[in-house]
Design a binder for these strands. Sequence first.
DNA 1: TTAAGTGCAAAAGTTTTGCACCAAG
DNA 2: CTTGGTGCAAAACTTTTGCACTTAA
Lengths: 177, 177
Amino acid sequence: MALYTAASLKAELNARGWRLTPQRETILHVFQNLPRGNHLSAEDLYNLLLRRGENISLSTIYRTLKLMARMGLLRELELAEGHKHYELNQPYPHHHHHLVCIQCNKTIEFKNDSILKSGLKQAEKAGLQMIDCQLTIHTICPEALRLGWPSMLPSNWSCPRAHMDAHPWDESESAAE
Amino acid sequence: MALYTAASLKAELNARGWRLTPQRETILHVFQNLPRGNHLSAEDLYNLLLRRGENISLSTIYRTLKLMARMGLLRELELAEGHKHYELNQPYPHHHHHLVCIQCNKTIEFKNDSILKSGLKQAEKAGLQMIDCQLTIHTICPEALRLGWPSMLPSNWSCPRAHMDAHPWDESESAAE
DNA sequence: TTAAGTGCAAAAGTTTTGCACCAAG
DNA sequence: CTTGGTGCAAAACTTTTGCACTTAA
């Protein structure tokens, strides 16, 4: 399930002339223990660590997220919030895709192996090595439609769905450790 | 091929209590005449219009792009450049997906109807109305791999692929009108 | 020992917003 | 007329970077 242990991450970093630092190990650990369906922005990760008493600078967070995404260890998600989110880049059968409401940003995961296969085939056909493959489905949720989206929706309206399971890692993740 | 005429855009805007302005019409027109495979960032669009002697403020550009994306008229693409790109949101059979090299940002389009179908089915199953559905495949191109990506690649290296057909709209689009 | 990594603060880049004026319906 | 839209400039955010210091290998 866990793709990388601290040891294998170290091996892979060293092979590229890079180093395993306590910060990188901590960040890997956070993603490995993130409940399913969660993904963190740089700021989320920074705050989560702060709450735990681990003070890793935002610069390092950004540098590490980028590094790990380029290594193929993390997936960079562009859902609808205006900033990137990250999660472990897990292979089949954990690989999944996202539905996002463009009004309330509520996100739902789903799996579909044939899409993953199409992605691989397509990359191969183009002579490129696939690192990640994500289907993002932009939608409008029925709550927003019912309230008259797009014209009649109050600008400050927030979708009830957005709160159904918002930031579960906020509580449970630290409790889980 | 063109999904909206100025008249149908006007009708749809008015239905929502909004207005058709010369700026909106101009922007719609640009996207309708954009050669296939091109997509514009806010800045791209701003500059393209400037070169044509049409001065539409960046604020208006941003507001219009967001509006049209929320109407489902434009697709918002998050390729790898750190800012959004837009293109017409065309239905089957023009609907397509993207391969992106995370090293050089070179983008390749491809079509796959079964993915579009999967997206529709998935949205329906979740009780959501689909607006857009994009498969983004993150890859590494062989040029980068050959040069020792990721560790050995000079930080200022730029992939030859990135220049193969960069910004064709830069010349041809204005010529086409 | 030495090159890579970190933290801090400053900078850069993208997108949003307040407000006065303009214009579509 | 009335309300929405535009342009401008300022602000807000996210992400990157320069530099001195630290540390993994």
